[in-house]
Design a binder for these strands. Structure first.
Lengths: 233, 233
DNA sequence: ATATATAAAAATGTCGACATTATTAGCTTG
DNA sequence: CAAGCTAATAATGTCGACATTTTTATATAT
């Protein structure tokens, strides 16, 4: 039997694409634990589709390294490790520094304006971090994206997005335990302001070093947190 | 009906993964033209599998941006454009420079040894480029990989591989027309020697600039070649 | 003749069914 | 009682079938 005549989604996408999004979120925010086996029966139940769209979705996440597959043994959530976490964060820091270096070379007024706008939205939400961490993370990310976008390279931005997603998986596994320590948060905010200053002044070397530090500090925090020790099992 | 009882492949992989490899090659070397519609009937015929493994394979190449999909309108080979070509090559140059910079920081004797070994295999094949361009490209790539691997970052190497594949698609579209001009080739060889020298001397800034030039020259050649003008239609 | 509407043909996306393979449970034996 | 074998149970991977949608071909009207 096919889908009901009254379609719930007006989407232009097929089921697989829809499932990709939901499944990705479920993996990133930890609904499906690292290493967990993804049984077809359960997935069918949860997303209300057959195996074909599911396998297509899983195939996509396979390339994005969020799931792994073994022949005749099905799919599993990509396992986590301290080693991989450090590698992803380190790479992410270098890529972001690269974006910023290129962006500063090409930067114009419009780029500056975009950064100021995003920074404003982020600052305005500063006090509500503990109220709605999700929304804050969105604005935080939008701020950094407004900077990186100045590199003017779709290819590089694609790489950047992929790394962000992998990293956010580790961040979420940790966030669920250690909720927003305000000391860490305040330090973060100051780093943002220094970064903006360096960008507007086109201080490339300085900005790149600032962003490296900014992106590496979470990985240092994660390394010693409860979250990751739990991941060692 | 299922596959014949006598399996042709002793592979540990499922059909989808096998098809991924073959289909990827067919796209990269231009058997399927940019923008070409990938009709299921034809793919079934060519790879001797049903639609399920095919859709899985296509879903993977979708993320790798080698194919595109439109709902109810099937899959197409990802189109090419001069713009994208330049962006991919530019990004690739930056990533390779990044790998080399990190590798020089961490480089030890083993790294040097690996480079020398790969360089030797490449030099030995120097005269046979026109005889077997495929094999030369393999050794050329192995040489560059032996350098980049020193960055010691699986994540970064993954990014690098993906970019190499996308770039090689453009290179192949061009290679089929302009076959190995020896002047270009000789210049290439000299660049390799300069690069090796800089690496062994740990001259980071110099090496990074050399690799950027080395990787950007093909894109400059492609830009004005017949190959790409044909791609503009 | 061009444009519009209609019918026919082709192609896509999804499901259920089934063969194959892995996993578990129960049983035997040293 | 542990270790190995066997039977059962469960899960995967692939195909053919079918409903839905797009594309092509044909007919009609302005």
């Amino acid at each position: 039997m096919n889908r009901s005549p009254v379609e719930v989604d007006n989407n232009r996408n097929n089921s697989a694409l829809i499932v990709v999004g939901e499944l990705k979120q479920d993996i990133l925010n930890g609904y499906f634990q690292p290493g967990e086996k993804l049984k077809m029966a359960r997935l069918k139940e949860r997303y209300q589709v057959g195996v074909s769209p599911l396998r297509e979705a899983l195939s996509q996440l396979l390339i994005e390294q969020l799931v792994v597959v073994e022949n005749q043994r099905g799919f599993k959530v990509h396992p986590v490790s301290r080693e991989e976490m450090l590698d992803i964060y380190a790479t992410r820091a270098e890529i972001e520094a690269l974006c910023i270096g290129l962006a500063i070379e090409k930067g114009d007024d419009e780029w500056d304006a975009g950064i100021m706008a995003a920074a404003h939205k982020m600052r305005k939400f500063g006090g509500l971090v503990e109220k709605d961490p999700q929304e804050w993370e969105r604005r935080h990310q939008a701020f950094h994206t407004s900077i990186a976008i100045g590199c003017d390279s779709p290819t590089l931005m694609q790489v950047r997005r992929s790394l962000y997603e992998k990293a956010s998986r580790y961040r979420n596994l940790w966030l669920n335990k250690n909720m927003a320590e305000s000391t860490v948060f305040d330090a973060n905010q100051k780093e943002h302001e220094s970064l903006i200053e360096a960008l507007l002044e086109r201080e490339s070397i300085n900005a790149r070093e600032l962003i490296r530090e900014h992106l590496l500090s979470p990985s240092r925090a994660l390394e010693t947190s409860q979250g990751l020790t739990a991941l060692d099992r």
